[in-house]
Every structure is written in C-alpha cells, then in structure tokens.
Computed example of a mutant assay.
Amino acid sequence: MSDIKVKICGLSTEETMEAALDAGADMVGLMFFPKSPRHVSLSDACKLADMARDRAEIVAVTVDMDLDGLSRIKELVAPDTFQFHGSEAPEACAAAKVMHGTGVMKAVSVAAKEDLEKALYYSVVADRILFDAKPPKGSDLPGGNGVSYDWSLLKDLDLKKPFMLSGGLNADNVAEAIRVSGVKEVDVSSGVERDKGVKDSNLIRAFMAAVKAA
C-alpha cells in the first residue's frame, strides 16, 4: 500500500465526490473561480463539503480572491484549508491563516529550476506548497490545464514543509512522476476528467489505484 497522499481537485458533483472519497482520497478540492469549468456555487460547495467532512481534508481553491469572498467561503463551506492559486503575496497567505484559522496551501508555477526559489518565501507562512505547471500561453486558468513539467526538479527538495506535485498527472503517468520526483503527495484535476471540467468516477478510481500501486 502506498503512503502517498492524494488530492482530487475540482470536484463538482456528488457522484464524483463520493467516488473520490470511497477510493480513499486524502484531500478534495472545491474550485471557487468563475472562469474555471470546475467552478462551484457556494450552495453546491456546501453540499459537497458536508459529504467530505471527517472523511477527507476539504480544500477551497481560490484565485486572487478578496477578503470578503474568503470570509463567505469560510462561513458557509467551512473548509479545512484555503489553496491560493493566483498571485497572492506571502503576507496575504499569512493574513488569511490568522483571520480564518484554516490551513493554507500556496500554488507555485514551475517551468524551470529557478521557479522553485519562489516557494521558499511562501513556505515560511504556508502549511503546504503545491507545485503546478506554468499555464500554456493564452490560457486564463492558473491551473487544471493538463500540462506537466520536469518532475525531477522536485527531487531532493528540502522545503521544511510538505509539498505536492500537480500538473498533467493521470493514471498512466502518476507512478513515474512519483518515482522521478520522489514526492509524497500528488494532486490531480484534468487527468481524471472525460471532458474539460467533467470528472469521471472510473478515472478517479483508476488514478487512486495507480497511486496505491506505485
């Protein structure tokens, strides 16, 4: 049995949330970003979060959201963790952590080794860093683009904080990604979708099985 922690991100239906929970996902991500095909309303998010509560860590994914928006999510959805996936400064991450009493995960976009340096600033205030691929030119989505990067960049990285590999993962390549990067945590979104933004329960189960076998 693998000891790799898995986050299934961008869940938006009760069926796929149940599939992720049944398959043993450690973390489930709810997307609060209207431009994303995975965006969920606050009312839907409440239902999905209630399904996951005490079964998996609930992560609210936001992109450069203002404090009022974060407060509404905290009040209504009560996530365990906020994931900041935009250009939020370390100070904003620290402020959210103090204000809301939640965990904080910060996404850092990676294309080359020098991009990892940015993570050092965030690792002081964030509880976890998520390394995602830089979005392709023309994309207005900061993540969930199904592109990957050189996973070996994360090999032997010592951040003093947990970190997660994201970007272009699926059931066919996740074992290789874990082997090459040496990471203990992975995140998937588009790699378990049959269409953009449409999660597939069978692909979720296949991804979880591939991780467990890795």
Rank of each mutant, 00 (worst) to 15 (best):
D22E: 13
A23C: 01
A23R: 06
A25W: 14
A25F: 04
A25I: 12
D26L: 13
D26V: 15
M27Y: 15
M27L: 15
M27W: 15
V28W: 02
V28P: 00
V28D: 01
V28K: 00
V28T: 03
V28M: 00
G29S: 04
G29A: 08
L30D: 06
M31E: 07
F32K: 04
F32I: 08
F33K: 06
P34N: 09
P34A: 13
P34R: 03
K35C: 02
K35R: 04
S36F: 00
S36V: 00
P37T: 06
P37N: 02
P37L: 07
P37M: 05
R38F: 05
R38I: 08
R38T: 08
R38V: 11
H39N: 15
H39V: 02
H39D: 13
V40S: 09
S41I: 01
L42Y: 09
S43K: 12
S43H: 11
D44V: 14
A45Y: 02
A45Q: 03
C46Q: 15
C46K: 15
K47F: 07
K47E: 11
L48W: 00
L48K: 00
A49H: 07
A49K: 07
D50K: 15
D50L: 10
D50R: 13
M51F: 14
M51H: 09
M51S: 10
A52Q: 08
A52P: 04
A52M: 07
A52D: 04
R53P: 12
R53H: 12
R53K: 15
R53L: 12
D54A: 09
D54W: 11
R55H: 12
R55A: 11
A56P: 11
A56I: 13
E57W: 05
I58W: 05
I58V: 13
V59R: 07
A60P: 02
V61L: 09
T62D: 00
V63Y: 11
V63K: 05
D64Y: 03
D64M: 05
D64G: 03
D64N: 14
M65Q: 11
L67H: 07
D68K: 12
L70E: 08
L70K: 10
I73A: 08
I73G: 13
K74C: 07
K74N: 11
K74Y: 12
K74R: 14
E75G: 13
L76E: 15
L76T: 15
V77E: 14
A78M: 13
A78S: 14
P79L: 10
D80V: 01
F82M: 03
F82C: 02
F84I: 05
F84N: 00
H85S: 10
H85W: 05
H85A: 04
S87E: 12
E88R: 07
E88G: 04
E88F: 01
P90Q: 13
A92I: 14
C93H: 00
C93P: 00
A95N: 10
A95I: 03
A96I: 03
A96Q: 04
A96N: 06
